[in-house]
Deep mutational scan, measured.
Amino acid sequence: GSLMYASIFGNVSAIIQRLYSGTARYHTQMLRVREFIRFHQIPNPLRQRLEEYFQHAWSYTNGIDMNAVLKGFPECLQADICLHLNRSLLQHCKPFRGATKGCLRALAMKFKTTHAPPGDTLVHAGDLLTALYFISRGSIEILRGDVVVAILGKNDIFGEPLNLYARPGKSNGDVRALTYCDLHKIHRDDLLEVLDMYPEFSDHFWSSLEITFNLRDTNMIPGSPGSTELEGGFSRQRKRKLSFRRRTDKDTEQPGEVSALGPGRAGAGPSSRGRPGGPWGESPSSGPSSPESSEDEGPGRSSSPLRLVPFSSPRPPGEPPGGEPLMEDCEKSSDTCNPLSGAFSGVSNIFSFWGDSRGRQYQELPRCPAPTPSLLNIPLSSPGRRPRGDVESRLDALQRQLNRLETRLSADMATVLQLLQRQMTLVPPAYSAVTTPGPGPTSTSPLLPVSPLPTLTLDSLSQVSQFMACEELPPGAPELPQEGPTRRLSLPGQLGALTSQPLHRHGSDPGS
């Protein structure tokens, strides 16, 4: 009898404990919600809404976190579960008819179910419309201010047509639940991603989709105040780019002037030289400038040598048109050559190039014969006009050509200096018209024969001689050997007369 009593008592207590286990969990969670309300000092109306929603959600799901349970299964099984949970929507909604099984599984994985109690606001006026909503159960109302403009029910759709707008718009009203509602919502990016994977279904979906109420604000059109608020930074940046392009296009129409201050000032006329910023005076940081632009901040801005204009002085008759350009485009679109090309026009420029290279940067340069637009006047290309890779490749080509020119210049200078040193070592320090008596009659020769300089066969020296023939050397430049009979510069000019005159010897006659 005691054994029977113990078994009955144990079973009854276990049954009672299981009955009250759900209630215990409910009270535990309710205590957490109330502690949250007390800690954050939530006001009474919002506090009442929180408690009511918790009670309804507990009775609806029995305190089970559906998302946590669903995430515990593998992905393939999750797709089947989501397809079952959203079967009513996918079967009865017209846009989803005719979709393949794979497309429906992908869509079912992207849908999220939302449960809303009465009085809950789903979308506020001015919120971004980031999702498309399908009503599965219940009814909602749409308000503009305090005026109800629409009441939607089961199988209705609200949001915005995503295929017509590249960016999400703003809501033009509040969406509030009238009863307990079940909503299926899919985010904008998720829907577009699935439709991109199934393009054959995309056309059918957009053609058959009928949005019951379009929440997009109709005033959000390009150029409206609301649109400016939504895309303020983007609009200002776009206007700045367009104004920069218009100014650079105007600059290219004036090829007669070359400016070292950047493309923003290349198009300024002579009357605007004294102004601080020219056409860019209202925004000094709008356009890029070269490193020399920092010198323009000092006094005497109108007389600054940074602004270059072609000189009108005539060229000498024998002067060549100019050196070879550094870039391939210089032959086609440049009416002034790079300062480095002028360094190779003569030997005198070679000796004085490194010492006063900055001073020569603004000297007169030889002109190319074609009066085409200036290379320095070409505006900086924006990322939309020329690819970045093209600019980098041009810079690399320019750097390689500069290296080759520097190597060639160093070799030419070394060769010229070597020839000058050899000339100085071969010439005796001094010569006299009267020579010392020699031991015999073989001493009648006034000077030792001097062998002429070897013929220069280097390509670089031939180019130097060509430049010497075309360029007029300055007075202080050293002379180079030329073709024809060679003669030492330090010898007297009348050596031929010395050989014809008898030598005057000093000596005593033994017979006297």
Rank of each mutant, 00 (worst) to 15 (best):
G126I: 01
D127E: 14
Y133C: 10
S139P: 01
E141A: 10
E141W: 01
I142S: 03
V148A: 08
V148I: 12
I151W: 13
I151D: 01
I151H: 05
I151A: 10
L152N: 01
L152A: 03
K154L: 03
N155M: 05
N155A: 04
D156Q: 05
F158S: 02
G159T: 02
L162N: 04
N163P: 06
N163D: 08
L164H: 11
N172W: 11
N172L: 11
C181Y: 01
L183V: 12
K185H: 13
L191N: 01
E193R: 07
M197I: 06
D203C: 10
H204P: 07
F205G: 03
W206H: 06
L209R: 02
L209I: 12
T212K: 03
N214A: 04
N219H: 08
M220I: 06
P222T: 10
G223T: 15
T228A: 09
E229R: 12
E229Q: 12
G233V: 11
F234V: 09
R236V: 13
R238Q: 13
K239F: 11
K239P: 13
K239W: 06
K241Y: 10
L242K: 06
S243I: 11
F244Y: 14
R246P: 13
K250Y: 12
T252G: 13
E257Y: 07
S259F: 09
P263D: 13
R265S: 14
A268E: 11
G269T: 11
S272N: 03
P284Q: 11
P284L: 10
S285D: 04
P288L: 05
P291Q: 15
P291C: 08
S293N: 13
E295C: 11
P299M: 01
S302E: 12
S304L: 14
P305F: 06
L308E: 13
L308K: 11
P310E: 08
F311C: 06
P314W: 15
R315T: 12
P316C: 04
E319C: 10
P320C: 11
P321S: 11
P321D: 04
E324Y: 08
M327Q: 01
D329K: 08
E331I: 09
E331Y: 07
K332P: 08
C337D: 10
C337F: 05
N338P: 06
L340T: 15
S341V: 08
A343K: 09
F344N: 10
G346D: 11
V347C: 09
N349P: 11
F353W: 12
R360Q: 09
R367Y: 07
R367G: 09
C368W: 09
P369D: 10
A370H: 12
P371Y: 08
P379M: 06
L380V: 13
L380N: 15
L380F: 08
E392V: 13
S393C: 04
L395T: 05
L395R: 05
L398C: 04
R400Y: 12
Q401L: 13
L402K: 03
N403L: 11
R408V: 10
R408S: 08
R408K: 06
L409G: 04
S410P: 04
M413W: 05
V416E: 04
Q421W: 04
R422D: 04
Q423A: 05
M424K: 09
T425H: 06
P429M: 13
A430F: 09
A433S: 09
T435N: 10
P439S: 13
P439D: 08
P439T: 09
G440S: 08
T444S: 10
V450R: 06
L453C: 08
L453W: 08
P454E: 10
P454Y: 05
L458S: 12
S460W: 04
L461C: 15
A469K: 04
C470E: 05
L473M: 04
L473E: 13
L473V: 10
P474V: 09
P478T: 04
L491Y: 04
L495C: 12
L498P: 11
S500F: 07
Q501E: 14
Q501F: 05
H504L: 11
H504N: 12
S508A: 08
P510W: 15
